[in-house]
């Protein structure tokens, strides 16, 4: 069995085992994270129509190639492993925050998560230091992930597996317990949201994905999530641990979210990577609006759910990034 197949088997629900493969560390031994000199507001969008087979199913190797293309361009390296080495250290414990609420069809794709795991391994991060996580085991399972809790192996579980902090973390209007995964387990986070419409807050992408790290997201949807979504992202344990954001826009949704509504989703076949969550959200918002216009739907503002939290995240009190598309460098590969 090929290595890729091994990984797939290990993450997918229903498999009876998973393999603890040794990471094959190649390339430059660079200092993680601190060497990144790129402009924070640079985004790389990698798109390819070759990532699907004739039935529309994702091809794992193609997804991995697409991610590698985006990573090498963003981190300005020749080899993908060098890009990952710039982001993480071998002894980091890396949490891959995915989004699984909508179940199969509109959750972070397994093929993408496999490619990320592969990238981390290539940077020397051992499997036991990788945690794939979301809000609840139930959500992960619904999306096709297998719960894995063995401490010496690749892990995959929800906040409910390990609970929440006992301390209240506060910023602005938000006061929440944070997932122990964020507080006590990870030293680095890779945020891997899905790009989709959201019936209450307008749209969800990078910023909103951290509602899955707090114990009381139900309290923070009023006023289209503004300023709550921006406030959650200000919590130091979240803000300081994020190393990279990879928006899964392989399949995206422009209406009817957050549940999966196939009639309103489209195959964007793209990954958008960057460091600035506000830039990612602004660009994602732009893509959704473009699609809505194409489909003759009212804009999110006209629909009464403009995601104003994006601008709030960029304001003086938050300064989480750039929401002005004209100031972003968006590189298409």
């Amino acid at each position: 069995m090929k290595r890729r197949k091994f990984i797939k088997t290990s993450l997918q629900a229903g498999s009876a085992f998973y393999l603890g493969l040794n990471a094959n560390c190649r390339g430059e031994d660079q200092q993680a994270h601190s060497t990144i000199s790129l402009k924070r507001s640079t985004l790389v969008e990698a798109k390819s129509y070759r990532i699907r087979d004739t039935y529309g199913k994702l091809i794992s190797s193609q997804v991995e190639q697409l991610l590698n293309k985006a990573m090498t361009r963003l981190l300005e390296t020749e080899k993908p492993e060098s890009a990952w080495q710039k982001l993480v250290k071998k002894d980091d414990v890396v949490g891959i925050k995915i989004n699984c609420l909508a179940g199969r069809g509109m959750s972070t794709h397994l093929e993408l998560v496999e490619a990320i795991v592969e990238g981390l391994r290539s940077a020397g991060v051992p499997d036991r230091n990788i945690i794939i996580w979301d809000r609840a085991n139930r959500d992960l399972e619904k999306a096709g992930y297998k719960i894995q809790t063995n401490r010496n192996k690749l892990k995959c579980y929800g906040n409910d597996q390990v609970g929440y902090s006992r301390r209240l973390y506060e910023f602005g209007e938000v006061g929440s317990f944070l997932s122990n995964i964020v507080i006590h387990q990870c030293t680095a986070i890779i945020n891997v949201p899905i790009l989709k419409d959201h019936g209450i807050v307008g749209m969800t992408n990078a910023l909103k994905n951290f509602f899955g790290a707090i114990h009381n997201p139900n309290k923070y949807h009023d006023n289209c999530g503004d300023p709550y979504i921006a406030d959650v992202n200000m919590l130091p344990d979240i803000r300081k641990k994020i190393r990279l954001i990879i928006t899964d826009a392989l399949t995206a949704q422009y209406e009817g979210g957050p549940p999966y509504m196939p009639q309103w989703s489209w195959q964007h076949n793209g990954l958008i990577v960057g460091f600035d969550p506000v830039a990612l959200d602004s660009y994602g918002y732009h893509l959704i609006e473009k699609k809505r216009k194409e489909k003759k739907l009212p804009s999110l503002k006209e629909a009464g759910r403009e995601p104003t939290y994006i601008a709030t995240a960029a304001d003086k009190a938050h300064q989480l990034g750039t929401d002005d598309l004209s100031k972003l460098q968006i590189i298409q590969v």
Partner: peptide, 10 residues
Amino acid sequence: MPISLLASKT
């Protein structure tokens, strides 16, 4: 009790 460390009990 504080927020617990309970596993999912679906």
